[in-house]
Each structure stands twice: as structure tokens, then as C-alpha cells.
Design a protein around this nucleic acid. Structure first.
Length: 350
RNA sequence: AGGAAUCGACUGU
């Protein structure tokens, strides 16, 4: 029976929950009840795939086999429902298991609080928080961070900071993640000075920024047009030994193309590829738009050819910009060629 | 025991 459970969990981990479920069903038919852990893993795998019909099948199977799901199983389902924009269904299940007498633990409460924050239902989140506290469960750093994240993103830095300090007052330690949350809020609202103040603060406390910290700062700087400073942060990221990610480059490429520094953007794309990172489609669109903007539409067209060769489809507005740029620079034949490609991929001239 | 928090990705403007 342990072997069945082990194999079934391996199937779930490998993204083959259907195979895992058949194993458990066969075993149950031969008289051995499924393990909760294995069934739980299978349910989580179905939920991660958005296959909630199979989640429901597996739940019914567990109940019928005399092995009803525990709160951990429901936590996984609720988490994935929120993640896939099905918060209403998540809340319905949350209410239902409470009615059925399940004892809700801290992780499940926190999952619901976080899910509600993400869909901007802060009042409901607060209500669940209060319910948790009434039950004698103290919010931990995860729960605080969910609320801090909400207020931070909403631009209510005061409230975010108050909650953050309350968290510290309860003995939870500041971390790279908690600082990243505060820094994000400032960057989203263009308050880059505040963001850098927080960066100083964290480093003074001996908390090291990670690649996400840099990504947030770079994005914030690009947003307010401080491209030089953003590039400086990119270099600092490299010299501190961290590995950049796609999200490190995306705002830099965008901002450079926007400012007409298309050669710099192309260099960045080449550095990405040298590191094995593929730029987003959107970055390719930016390059073409950038070339058009600085009247180098021939290079924009060459970039388009490269995209098509790699089976990447530019946006409709990119085609339009290119057609316009080619025609104003007198390259009518090229403009018509691009136009024909545009129609072939199903786009219209604006 | 495991399962919950940060940039990003996807979709729209």
C-alpha cells in the first residue's frame, strides 16, 4: 500500500495526476484505502492545472473510500482557485468546510486573507483576519505581509508601514521579502526616493537585496524616466553576483526603445540571449517601434523578419507603426510587403 | 511533515 501511495505521489509530482488517481482507484478496488497524502497531492496537481472537475471527482473518491480530505487538501484547492481568478468559488468552499465543522488552521486562513487582498476585497480580508484572531490564531509574517502588500500597492504607505511595524513588534523579523513588498508599493507609485530609502534601511539592517529587489527598483526607475540610474542598478545587480531574470531586462528594453536608444536595447537583448534568457514578445515589439521612431524603419523591418522566422507574432499596432514609418520614409514597396504579411496574419490597417 | 506572503508571466485598456 505504501508503494502505491509513493507511486501515486510521484505521478502527481510529475504532472500526471490522472495516472496517480487510477493507481489509487485500483488499489481501493482491491481493498486498500488511499493515503491522504497521495490523494492530496493528486488533488493539488489537478487544481494547479485548473482541472476542478477532476478535483471534485477525487474529493468524492476520497470520501467514498473512507479517507475524507483534511484542511491541507482544501487549502491547496482554495489557493489554486484564487490564483486562477475563481475567488468566488474559493470562498464558497471556505464557507462550506467551516459549516461542515473543519477546524481552519493558520495557513488556510492566511491563504484566504491573501486571496482576498489580491482581488482588492480588503474589508473581507480584514473580516477573515478578525475571525482568525477570535479563534485564538495569531497572524504571522505571511498574514501581515499579505495586508502590507495590499496597502503598499494601494499607495497607502502609512497604513502599510504601521502594519509592518506591528509585525516587527510581534517579533517577526524583517526580510528581503517584506522589504520587497514595501519597495514595490513605492515604485508602483513613482516614489523612487522612498524606495531607495527603504533599500538603505534594509541594507543597514544587514538584509541583502535579491534579484527581485533589483527588478522592482529597475522597473520603478524606468517608469519615472530615470533610465541612467536604472542601468546603474542593472550593473550593480551583476556586480553583486546575482543572476538577472527576464523581468530585469523588460523595463530597460522598453525604456531604451521609447527614448530612441534602440542600439542599447538590442545590446541588452543580446546579453539576455547570451545568458539563455528569451526576451518577451513585447520587447521585440518595442525594438521595432523604437526603430520606427528614430526613422530606421529598414532595421525595424529586418527585426520583423527575424521575429517571423522564429515564429513570433508582433502586435497589430507594431505592424501599423512599421507600415507608417516605411511609407513616410519613401519605402513604399517594403510598406506594401509588410502590409501583405499583416493581412496574412489576420490584422487590419488602422 | 507538507501546504500560505514579494518583481514577473498570461488577458484586457
Amino acid at each position: 500500500a505504501d508503494t502505491v501511495a509513493c507511486l501515486a505521489r510521484a505521478c502527481a509530482a510529475d504532472g500526471r495526476p490522472l495516472d496517480g488517481l487510477s493507481l489509487l482507484r485500483d488499489a481501493a478496488r482491491r481493498g486498500s484505502p488511499p493515503s491522504r497524502a497521495a490523494a492530496g497531492d493528486i488533488i493539488a496537481a489537478f487544481a494547479a492545472d485548473g482541472n476542478f472537475a477532476k478535483v471534485s471527482d477525487t474529493l468524492h473518491f476520497m470520501i467514498a473510500a473512507g479517507c475524507p480530505p483534511d484542511t491541507g487538501v482544501y487549502q491547496g484547492i482554495i489557493y489554486h482557485l484564487f490564483a486562477q481568478g475563481l475567488g468566488g468559488e474559493a470562498l464558497r468552499i471556505f464557507r462550506e468546510i467551516k459549516l461542515r465543522g473543519y477546524d481552519i488552521d493558520r495557513v488556510l486562513y492566511t491563504t484566504v486573507i491573501n486571496g482576498l487582498c489580491k482581488i482588492h476585497r480588503i474589508d473581507d480580508a480584514q473580516q477573515v483576519w478578525d475571525e482568525m484572531v477570535d479563534k485564538g490564531i495569531e497572524p504571522n509574517d505571511y498574514a501581515y505581509c499579505s495586508l502590507v502588500h495590499y496597502y503598499s500597492k494601494a499607495g497607502d504607505f502609512k497604513k502599510a508601514r504601521n502594519l509592518y511595524d506591528e509585525m516587527l513588534g510581534k517579533g517577526f523579523k524583517a526580510s528581503t521579502i517584506s522589504y520587497n513588498i514595501l519597495i514595490t508599493g513605492h515604485c508602483v507609485h513613482g516614489a523612487v526616493d522612498g524606495a531607495f530609502g527603504l533599500l538603505d534601511e534594509m541594507m543597514t539592517e544587514g538584509i541583502e537585496p535579491d534579484v527581485i529587489t533589483y527588478n522592482i527598483l529597475i522597473q520603478g526607475l524606468c517608469k519615472v524616466g530615470k533610465l541612467d540610474k536604472a542601468m546603474q542598478m542593472y550593473k550593480q545587480l551583476l556586480s553583486s553576483g546575482l543572476e538577472p531574470t527576464v523581468s530585469t531586462f523588460t523595463p530597460l528594453i522598453d525604456a531604451m526603445c521609447e527614448k530612441g536608444q534602440v542600439d542599447g536595447a538590442v545590446d541588452l537583448i543580446e546579453s539576455m540571449q547570451a545568458k539563455g534568457l528569451e526576451p518577451l514578445v513585447r520587447s521585440n515589439d518595442s525594438v521595432i517601434n523604437g526603430f520606427c521612431k528614430i526613422s530606421r524603419s529598414d532595421e525595424g523591418m529586418a527585426w520583423l523578419a527575424g521575429m517571423l522566422k522564429s515564429n513570433i507574432k508582433p502586435r497589430e499596432q507594431t505592424f501599423n507603426a512599421l507600415v507608417e514609418s516605411l511609407s513616410t520614409s519613401g519605402r513604399l514597396d517594403d510598406a506594401l510587403l509588410v502590409l501583405s504579411i499583416m493581412f496574412k496574419v489576420g490584422f487590419e490597417l488602422s
